[in-house]
Design a protein around this nucleic acid. Sequence first.
RNA 1: CGGGGCAUGGCGCAGCUUGGUAGCGCGCUUCAAUGGGGUUGAAGAGGUCGUGGGUUCGAGUCCCGCUGCCCCGACCA
Length: 578
Amino acid sequence: MRLSHSFGKTLREAPAEAELVSHQLLIRANYIRPVGAGMYTFMPFGYRVIRKIWRILAEEMDAIDGQEMWMPNLNPAALWQATGRWNSVDVLFKLKGNGNREYALSATHEEVVVDLALREIESYRDLPRMVYHISKKFRDEPRPRGGLMRLREFIMKDAYTLDRSEAALDEYYPSMIQAYFNVFNRCGVPTVAINADVGAMGGKTSQEFTVPHPQGEDVFIACDNCGYAANVEAAEFVREGERPATLAALTKVETPDCKTIADVAAFIGVPTSQTIKAVFYWWRPRYVETPGEGQLVFALVRGDLAINDTKLVNALGGGFVRAATEDEIRAVGAVPGYASGVGLTPAQGLQSPGVMVMADTSIEYGGNYVVGANEEPYHYTGANYGRDFAVSKLADIAQADTGHKCPVCGGRIEAKRAIEVGHCFKLGTRYSAAVNATYLDENGQPQLIYMGSYGIGLDRLMAVVVELHNDKDGIIWPDSVAPYQVHLVHIGKEGDGTKARAEALYERLLAAGVEVLYDDRDGLGAGVKFKDADLIGIPWRVTVSARSLEQGGVEVKRRSASERQNLTEDQLLGLLKG
RNA sequence: CGGGGCAUGGCGCAGCUUGGUAGCGCGCUUCAAUGGGGUUGAAGAGGUCGUGGGUUCGAGUCCCGCUGCCCCGACCA
């Protein structure tokens, strides 16, 4: 490619709104251009990087018996209604065609795949199968951000496995995990696989592939001692503390202006771990909030811990929660700031009368608590679980954090930020059951197909590569995903004969099958061309100039290194081919 | 959805406090010089100041509405 013919150009300054390094560099170096919030055009260089990642993905998927196909991005509403996700996936883009026909833009492709499986898979002889495709996904994200990090329209490799049984899926699963590590390693992105919440995907378990990064959106828990790693939405930890030997009497004390745990603990003179925090949520079964649907959920956790919403939802068996309003709280007889389970009658379940009181198991690891009196401005001291208040359900709903005890080895865990670049889900029969996708086993009996789904966002992966591979001058692409292998730079003035030599080398490299970006622009100083080369970040820089010719040929420099060496053209070809 | 910020030429910004018909750097065009780290000089092109309304003799500037974009949070397959 001749730079003199390339579409678009590099920018000296990035747009002010670009904050992430990858965002700034990808725009400055002419890889991407913004179109709207969460929408980007991949310029020619950028698209070449996407194609490189594409090829790596295809190779790794093919290596584990994957078959690449291509599914539509426009889906009939019926497909999504059949699995129940038409109304439960909040980020689903919905649109209407002529008349009343409704469609969804593909947010993912479980629906299409399970519908295909329903039609194509008849016998156990048709299993197992693995199909994948690389195409656009559309999600109405409330807040796109970070350039390519979170988009409304993005490119995803999504693979789907169809198996006879859970055991068969379990057997295959590790090869997919390995393929994922291969993909990320080949792209120069070392990842950590962590246990994660399955979220709206449904299913049993999932592994998230993340890259530790200070500006990542995910928080995960890691144990340096044993290697335990999990997303905070799923991370477990050991509750520490003991029940006191003697239980104090329940005593009401006046606590003026004590609306937070810290206030109360300081006022009474106890550690926060000797208090119980009460948090109110409004739970509803579907994302869409309908008046009259849903109910208040009262969540309790020991005062030194915090509640994790996702864990709470899982403990409730699904649905959605938001913070309850003050009116909703008062309606059940609790007082915001002075609330506790004392005096409340816990419901047996979501459908039963009474107040749903969810408590973290941590309240069992302590006692003689300071809790709200449900009366302003009073708290109780000496409150004990079981004697003074009851709960609907004890569950693991507290968020693990730095300093807590590892559930595996008892070591100290740490909370870290990370970017999620891939996710593997064991879906089980979540989708096949919804549409009754079955096969006939050896006995002629219909059995549900076991599914798995496995995604990698190409755009986000590209951004992460840049986050990990750059310096003050620009991008430093790993060879595997670089848009070109060689950045050929010509420096010289008209009539000095250098241009002809550069042109000849360009033709020779092309003939040898080398991917070359050739800076053939006339009249530019060496500084401009070198700055652009550094910004664009192609692995090899090859310079043809009067100086290089005097020294016998071409000057060769790795983008990642500072040394330069002079080689003959033959040596250069040998280097690139070797 | 809650909080904050921004919107002036392709990009980065000034002008707004105190209303008087828009300016700087980069980039772009032309010419000349330079020719190994965003080089230099000269001459140019390019903006109904996001949008709708209001106040005013007069609005980029003041007031109200809307839209878009960015950041934090919520949310997030």
